Each structure stands twice: as C-alpha cells, then as structure tokens.
Computed example of a mutant assay.
Amino acid sequence: MRVLLVGGSGFVGTALARELHDRGHEVAALSRSPDEADLPAGVETVSGDVTEYESIAGAFADRDAVVNFVALSPLFEPPRGTSHEAVHLGGTENVVAAAEDHGVSRLVQMSALGADPDGATAYIRAKGAAEEVVRASSLDWTVFRPSVVFGDGGEFVAFTKKLTTPYVTGLPGGGRTRFQPVWVGDLAPMLASATVEDGHSGETYEIGGPEVLTLAEVAKRIYRAEGKSLVVLPVPMVLARLGLTVMGAVPGFPMGPDQYRSLQFDNTTADGDASVFGRDPAGLRTLGDYLGVD
C-alpha cells in the first residue's frame, strides 16, 4: 500500500514510518522539515505546511491511505504566530480536502483522549473540531485517541522533568491529575494495522497503557530511574492558575493558563481498545519498565 504520513517526521510519525516500512509498504513522510527526521532508508520525504493547501496537495496524488499526525503539543503554549485552531482544525481541513481531491480512500486521524469541540482547552477544542471535519468527509476514516505517548524522542518525560525538580518539588494539586501512558512501540503497530487492514472504517479507538498513574507517580518514577528520591508538595490550584496565567504572558515562557486547565481533568480511558488489534491491554509496556524501575 502507498501511505502518506502527514507530520511523518514527528515522534509517533517516525515510529509508524518504520513499522509500515518493515511491513513492506511504500511510505512517504510529509512535514515542514522532513529531511531532519530519523526515517528508514527508502521512506520518501516531502516538504509542506498543512496550513497552506497548495504546499501539500501534490503529495496526495497516487496514495492509497493518509495518516494525519500534524499537531502542536498540548504541554506547551503554541509558538508565536500560530494556534491550535490553525494547525489542528485548519490543517485537518486541508488534509481532508487534499485526500478527497486526489482520490485517496482512507484516512487515519491522530486525535487525543477527551477531544471535544466544547472542551476546556484550545488543544482539546481544536482536536474535537478536527474530528468533526474527518467524520463529515467522504473518506473511509478512522480516529485514534491515545493518552500521553512515551518513548525515545517523546516529550512526556522531558516535560515532567521541566515541571519538577529532584528530591522536593511542588505540583499543582499535589500532582493528582491521572494519565494512562502508552508506549510508542505498542501504539505504532496498532496505527499500522488500522491504516493498511480492512475493518476499521468509521471507528474511533481510545488507546491507553496498562496502568493509570498520577502526575506525582510519573515524576517519582522518572527520578527514581536517575537514582533520586522525590517528595511532592501540593501547590494550591488557585495559585497554579494565577502563576501560569501571569507567566504565560511573558514572551518565551513555554506554559500558560491552558496548561493549568489541562491539569483539571484526567487523561485516561475506562475501556481501551488495544484488544481490537490483538493486544492484551494489561500486557502493554509500562512506563516503569521503559525507565528501568519496574
């Protein structure tokens, strides 16, 4: 199958490129700077910006399937001059239009747990609105909603370290926000199967890892892997909101009020869909195993 990965030079995109390439499919990775990615030899690279239709449209010719990964991180404020709406919603509108214009039949959309056009953060709202665009299209679509994804090259561990300090740290609400981290090495084969196999059209899959961890538990595992202990002190949520709102107005500061709001709700799924792809949810790789502390 001839597969185009839009945003294919990113963390999950490169993992899927390797998986599809190993399965014998023709893979092309489209992004603004695809040549900088660690992609397997034989994967085609295409330059383009999803917010500009004409820059990406030609890459969709003669493709059997498209996977849309393009996204801004929910963990940090968008770079100046762009927005979640422009990239997630506007970019998805361009991806869908290009696929329809060039006769691509299948689209896999990378979304997020909790995606909702009326959600609490700009990221969640834009992801939800993008899902509506995908579902309204004429394509055979599949939507993936993973929890946070970890692995080599991912940002979840690095973000947690940026948010904390070793030995003693403060976390909003004591770090009670819950996550269900999923390893990229488990997620990529599921994405590949949904892309190249039949039977997934019109489905929305929520994917979480084998354990639910609070942010405090995540931080403790990360520092334990470095041989360091960690005591978490609760920061009242009202103070976290005030601090991130004030600092978010400072040019260059990477977080803002949306990051506070994202800590107000859990990032978990009650009934993950890994079993659809022949995987026992309890058998997926844990964050602790990846860090070497299980």
Results as ranks from 00 to 15, higher is better:
A97C: 04
V104H: 01
A122R: 05
D62E: 15
H84T: 04
P78R: 05
E93V: 04
S73L: 15
V95D: 01
L89K: 08
R63Y: 12
A98N: 04
D118Q: 08
A59C: 14
V66A: 07
P74I: 08
R80L: 09
A98D: 02
L113M: 12
A86I: 06
L113K: 07
T82G: 07
G114S: 04
A57I: 12
A122I: 02
S105L: 05
R63M: 15
L89C: 05
R80V: 07
T121A: 00
S73D: 12
V95W: 03
D62L: 11
G90R: 06
D64L: 04
H88D: 01
A59Y: 13
P74E: 04
D101G: 09
D118L: 06
H88M: 03
P117C: 04
N68F: 15
G81N: 08
S83F: 11
G90I: 10
A99V: 02
P74M: 06
L89I: 09
F76T: 13
S73F: 13
E93Y: 00
E52T: 10
M110Q: 06
E77A: 14
A61F: 11
P74C: 04
V70Q: 11
D101W: 05
A86L: 11
V87P: 00
A115Y: 00
G119K: 01
G90K: 09
F76Y: 14
V66P: 05
A65L: 09
A115F: 01
G91F: 02
F60G: 11
G58A: 13
A61H: 13
E100W: 03
A122S: 09
H88I: 00
H88G: 01
T121Q: 00
F76P: 02
G119L: 01
A86D: 09
T92D: 03
I56P: 11
S111D: 08
L107S: 05
G81L: 08
V66C: 07
L72M: 10
H102D: 13
L75F: 13
T82C: 09
I56F: 07
V96H: 07
L75E: 08
F60V: 12
S55T: 15
H102C: 10
S55H: 05
Q109R: 09
Q109P: 05
L75R: 10
A57E: 13
T82F: 07
H88K: 03
V70T: 15
D64F: 06
A59I: 13
P78V: 03
E85Q: 09
V66D: 02
A59P: 14
D116Y: 03
D62F: 13
H102Q: 15
D64I: 03
T82L: 06
P117W: 02
A122W: 02
